[in-house]
Simulated scan of single mutants.
Amino acid sequence: MSGQRAGRAQRVKEWLLGAGPAEPGTLADALGLAEDTPELQGLRQAEGSQLVRIEHLHTAAQHAFERRTRVDVCRALERAVRVALRDATDPDHLKEEADAAARQLEADAALAGGRGLNTGLAFGILLSPVVLVLALAVARAVPPLLGGSLGCPEELSLVYALVCFSGGAMGSVLSVVIRLRDAYQLIQRGPLRGATPGLPANPVQLAQTMRQEGWYRVVVGWFLATSLFLLINGGVLTLLTPPAVPDDLCGATPLTAAGHQAVIKGWFFWSSVGFLAGLNERWAYGLLRRGNEQQPTG
């Protein structure tokens, strides 16, 4: 039973983080041949460029994200070279097998990038309520330590700030989903390209980079939304005017229907500001720049 649990845990780990590092080996070692074997040297002279490409692909396959891809690509390339060693009458065979292996490795890299990005976004989403609860706890605990307390208007402002914060996280996630429907767009960026031309980046490393990119986007949404809330609510940025707080909010009598509508309107206003801040970074940065321009210079 413990072995089954360990096996499931290993599969889950590999699904999230990729297969563990494999024992590196050359193509000649996999074929059971020495590098100076006459047959291999003859094939190197006849199909030098294709054999070098296959060797690079074979090395890259040992670092594939999925273990099944590692095994399938390595076996296919080894089988193709064995066939070429026995019969060199089909010069296109090696090229076809190399092209098929390259496509499999590119698909594996795209899978690694997409899975890493989704994992990072999911981590950011799960982290958001934790940060919200901590922020609420700190906001309630600090004033009594300083000899003060949160009044009714301050509590409403705190709620609006947390609503804006949540909207920033939601907007950032949707922004990533809209922009990066194909995770391979990020794989083709310069820092993520493989060191060898024609080969994708290391998929396991790529998945780690995409996980960081995912939760980083959520954090950016938090800060953009919070910054806009502070600027707008503090009167520094006057391009957007928050709804007025109802006069009877903190009174002894219950809120009127108009008061309820004002509170709800404020909730939607701040959630929309936060959502747009996370969804459209250019819009948020533009508002932040305008807010800085409106600050007095002394």
Rank of each mutant, 00 (worst) to 15 (best):
Arg193Cys: 00
Val73Leu: 09
Thr253Ser: 14
Ala137Ser: 11
Arg5Val: 06
Asp87Ser: 13
Asp87Leu: 13
Arg140Gly: 10
Leu134Gly: 11
Arg53Val: 09
Met170Leu: 15
Trp267Met: 13
Gly168Trp: 04
Arg86Lys: 13
Leu288Lys: 08
Leu111Arg: 12
Ala109Val: 00
Gly18Gln: 01
Leu162Gly: 05
Arg79Ser: 07
Glu47Gly: 06
Leu156Asn: 03
Glu155Leu: 07
Leu132Lys: 09
Trp15Glu: 11
Ala257Cys: 02
Gly278Tyr: 02
Phe165Ser: 07
Leu16Ser: 05
Cys152Lys: 11
Gly259His: 09
Arg8Tyr: 07
Ala183Trp: 01
Ala60Gly: 02
Arg140Phe: 14
Arg53Glu: 03
Ala107Lys: 01
Pro197Ser: 08
Glu23Asn: 04
Arg189His: 08
Val177Leu: 15
Thr196Trp: 07
Gly120Cys: 04
Asn292Phe: 12
Asn233Phe: 02
Arg5Thr: 07
Glu97Asp: 08
Ala258Asp: 14
Leu279Gln: 09
Ile178Pro: 07
Met1Glu: 07
Glu39Gly: 13
Gly221Met: 04
Val12Gln: 01
Leu162Cys: 00
Gln45His: 09
Gly278Ile: 00
Gln104Arg: 14
Arg289Asp: 09
Ser227Leu: 06
Gly198Pro: 03
Ala19His: 14
His93Gln: 15
Asn118Glu: 05
Ser172Gln: 06
Leu145Arg: 12
Ala6Pro: 04
Leu121Ala: 12
Gln205Glu: 15
Ala19Met: 02
Arg8Glu: 08
Ala98Phe: 08
Thr119Arg: 15
Arg79Gly: 08
Pro296Asn: 04
Ala19Thr: 05
Glu23Val: 12
Val218Pro: 09
Val138Ser: 07
Ile264Arg: 15
Ala28Tyr: 01
Gly114Asp: 09
Pro144Gln: 11
Gly190Ala: 04
Asn233Met: 06
Ala139Pro: 03
Leu43Tyr: 10
Thr226Cys: 03
Leu206Met: 10
Ala107Ser: 02
Leu231Ala: 06
Ser157Asp: 05
Glu14Val: 02
Gly20Leu: 12
Leu136Pro: 00
Val204Trp: 00
Arg179Gly: 15
Trp283Tyr: 14
Gly167Glu: 01
Gly3Trp: 10
Ile54Arg: 00
Leu276Tyr: 09
Pro153His: 06
Gly251Thr: 06
Leu230Lys: 10
Gly25Phe: 01
Thr238Asp: 11
Asp108Arg: 11
Cys164Asn: 12
Gly25Ala: 10
Gly42Asp: 14
Leu105Cys: 05
Arg53Cys: 04
Gly151Gln: 05
Val83Tyr: 09
Leu192Gln: 10
Pro129Cys: 08
Met1Pro: 12
Leu162Pro: 01
Phe229Asp: 03
Arg79Thr: 10
Gly221Trp: 04
Leu249Trp: 11
Ala252Leu: 13
Glu293Cys: 01
Val83Asn: 08
Thr59Met: 01
Asn233Arg: 11
Ser149Cys: 01
Glu213Lys: 02
Leu249Gly: 02
Thr119Ala: 14
Leu33Thr: 05
Ala258Thr: 11
Asn118Gln: 09
Gly298Gln: 10
Val218Gln: 06
Pro191Glu: 03
Gly234Trp: 11
Gly167Asp: 08
Leu132Tyr: 07
Ala22Ser: 13
Pro144Gly: 13
Ile178Gly: 03
Pro254Glu: 15
Ser271Ala: 14
Ser272Met: 08
Gln212Tyr: 12
Asn292Gln: 14
